[in-house]
Design a protein around this nucleic acid. Sequence first.
RNA 1: UGGGGCGUAGCCAAGCGGCAAGGCACGGGACUUUGGAUCCCGCAUCGUAGGUUCGAACCCUACCGCCCCAG
Length: 377
Amino acid sequence: IIVTGCTGWQGVFGFNRKRVLVALSGGVDSAVAAALLLEKGCEVAGITFQLWEENGAGSSGAPYRTRRAREAAADARRIAETLGISHTVVDLRQPFAEEIIAYFAGEYSSGRTPNPCVICNRKIKFSALLQKARELEYPYTATGHYARVEYGRTQKRYLLKKGLDPDKDQSYMLYNLTQEQLSHSIFPLGKMTKKEVRTRARALGLPAADRKGSQEICFIPGDDYRAFLRRRGVTAAPGPIVDRRGRVLGRHGGIPFYTVGQRRGLGLTAPRPLYVLEIRPADNSIVVGEREELFSSGAELAGLNLIALAALDRELEVSVKIRYRAPAVPALLAPLPQERSASLLFREPQAAVAPGQAAVFYRDDLVIGGGTITAAV
RNA sequence: UGGGGCGUAGCCAAGCGGCAAGGCACGGGACUUUGGAUCCCGCAUCGUAGGUUCGAACCCUACCGCCCCAG
């Protein structure tokens, strides 16, 4: 197994910088990442971020998940002990609530479908990780993500690449990272498969080795984001559900509780399944239609973050992921006049292009960049 | 009371003589660092009782229930 470990980085950063601060989530991946760095002779310290904890009993059947969240730090500590490395816990609940939770609720309230992890990685996790690394004088940071970083000599930029395990690749979630963040990042699992990671974890006797990876949004117990929003007092004014022709088919319980592409939970009767095509905050309506109506030929993006390019100054053939769990599809990426904006034209129409979601574009394994979908075209 | 219509799973709803579509909802599983996305699997003997028929949810009769029109 080849690991993008410290050795590979010495050429770039000099010789005696082998101190790595590893973010330990309490799960297998980050634990193995830390272990691999140790094997490479790095001086490793572990850090765990406390992002969220819901106080008070959740609504239906949430206690299990809630407890899990609370135990994550304890799990991480146990892992650190097993590995024989130091470990600190950093409380980021305040900034997390202000940045991520607020964004999350705000987006849903506006009829968009947020991707909190993408924002969190940039603004919270990697930001705090780098800051802590500086404080503690660790030149490198590492996480258990399935992705790769390289320095591109021709581009003179730090490049993000897909993880080699096609089933686990998490580069999508990292497209929003800054050059600064990438320049310090090591992803020890970038060339490994999940299976290999589990095997290593077992061999190392890591506590979390066989635990099933449960990855709901880290702050949503039981995967019920709607209940979460209600608990946070998100208001929901019921409104009409209409079809493309404007016929009223039913009522919805409030725009925040729906997402483009959604099929379940509409409570409508039709010969064929109905999907949410569009959410219109302007008149508080939700437009539904059949599967075929869900396809769009393109999308508009804002908040562009480029990784492999300094600027997008011409059209570019790329493959793009419209959502995390979707294959990359061919598309034409073109700059738009507005700052950090671009348009995408899919080679084949794509289903459920949801405003708020991230579009990440690639050339082969290389992440070119990404942006937030503002509209389906 | 007379005339007409209807009664299919929790809901909506196909079928109109040959082994009960589909959707919603529900249950289970897969997937999983966004999204009640996606993907699998499960889920009724057809208001009741008879009759006709090799065979009925589909035809006939009676009853029960509901709806509309008439007075």
